[in-house]
């Protein structure tokens, strides 16, 4: 248990109720991790389309929204599953409370998922013209092919607040001092770029060398700054008694210490060096290994950061 007692007082709790343990657990970690992939592939995909010709990434048009669609559905599923009253999720739309980042986020994420679904359908039907050639849905989707390019800039723009709103939920969780809005906002953005580039690396086998070089560059930058953010927070977030007590406990080898350093090494340090080396020599296998490690490490890092402030006794 995290605490910050003064030895002189010898104050000890001798009778009290049982306190709740971890309230937001692995489902919320998975939720944040999947959302990072879902929005990250759109952001990194847009960057690649800005830098390179479409012909260099022949499958990007359909595979980018497909990866995003799958990840967003994992994110939405675990958002729903984590609720103690899942059927009442509808209340967010029927009785929205706009000061809550949960409400704003749910609306934006739903819209974002809807638009990504449309992009996935258009991209998929265009990429495979023989698939359901005479199907009414296929025909009508192929008929609005140009809609993809029209909504794409809006989807890219929307990906930014969808990435960031979880940071505001964490900031609104005012009982957990470790989570500060500016730091969490940056963490979320770097996580999205890291996860987005890592996910696209897996499908970049047939792409040009230059695009893979750019993916390695984004991965290297995202892992570097993510690591810097975590180090800054881990060692210097001492502006509140709660954050100080939490970190002192973890520093001293308490729970989650090992998981945290596994996350840092697997998720950020090793992928950074692998990605940097890959910018010189195009080694697809090593780059994929870096991407895999980055995704695993990101999950561990997020898991630790979600759980450690919940170890504090609040009353």
């Amino acid at each position: 248990m995290v605490e910050n007692t003064i030895h002189a007082t010898q104050a000890v709790v001798t009778l009290d109720v049982a306190l709740p343990g971890i309230i937001w657990g692995w489902m919320i970690t998975l939720n944040m991790w999947a959302k990072s992939i879902g929005t990250g592939v759109i952001l990194v995909g847009a960057f690649l389309l800005y830098r390179h010709k479409k012909e260099e990434m022949p499958n990007l048009r359909w595979i980018m929204p497909l990866i995003s669609f799958i990840a967003l559905n994992v994110f939405l599923l675990f958002t729903l599953v984590d609720l103690h009253q899942p059927y009442r999720m509808i209340n967010i739309f029927l009785h929205p409370h706009w000061t809550s980042a949960i409400t704003v986020g749910a609306w934006m994420a739903s819209l974002f998922t809807g638009l990504v679904t449309v992009m996935m359908l258009i991209g998929g039907f265009d990429a495979f013209p023989d698939f359901r050639k005479n199907c009414a849905i296929g025909k009508s989707v192929r008929g609005i092919s140009g809609f993809y390019e029209k909504i794409f800039p809006f989807v890219v723009f929307l990906a930014i607040p969808v990435t960031l709103y979880t940071a505001i939920i964490m900031a609104e969780s005012s009982a957990r001092e470790l989570w500060q809005a500016p730091a969490e906002v940056m963490q979320m953005m770097w996580a999205a770029l890291l996860a987005g580039s890592a996910a696209l690396i897996f499908v970049s086998g047939s792409w040009s060398k230059e695009t893979r070089k750019d993916l390695a560059l984004v991965l290297a930058i995202a892992t570097f700054f993510s690591f810097m953010m975590y180090m800054g927070e881990y060692f210097f977030s001492f502006k509140s008694a709660e954050a100080e007590a939490t970190l002192a406990y973890v520093h001293a080898g308490g729970e989650y210490n090992v998981e945290f350093w596994f996350g840092m090494v697997l998720g950020f340090i090793i992928p950074f060096f692998l990605a940097v080396s890959n910018m010189k020599s195009d080694n697809k296998t090593l780059l994929r290994f870096a991407a895999l490690l980055a995704l695993v490490g990101l999950y561990l890092a997020k898991d630790v950061w979600l759980k450690i402030p919940q170890m504090l006794p609040l009353s």
């Binding site: 248990m1 995290v2 605490e3 007692t5 104050a11 000890v12 049982a18 306190l19 309230i23 008694a241």
Partner: peptide
């Protein structure tokens, strides 16, 4: 401070005056 600040007193795990339950094993 000792009474109102939850960080200013020690909560020894697994031990209090009448029971040994310090944490709930579920939310809800």
């Amino acid at each position: 401070t000792q009474t109102l600040d939850p960080l200013a007193h020690e909560r020894i795990e697994g031990y209090s005056l009448f029971n040994n339950i310090t944490h709930l094993d579920a939310v809800g």
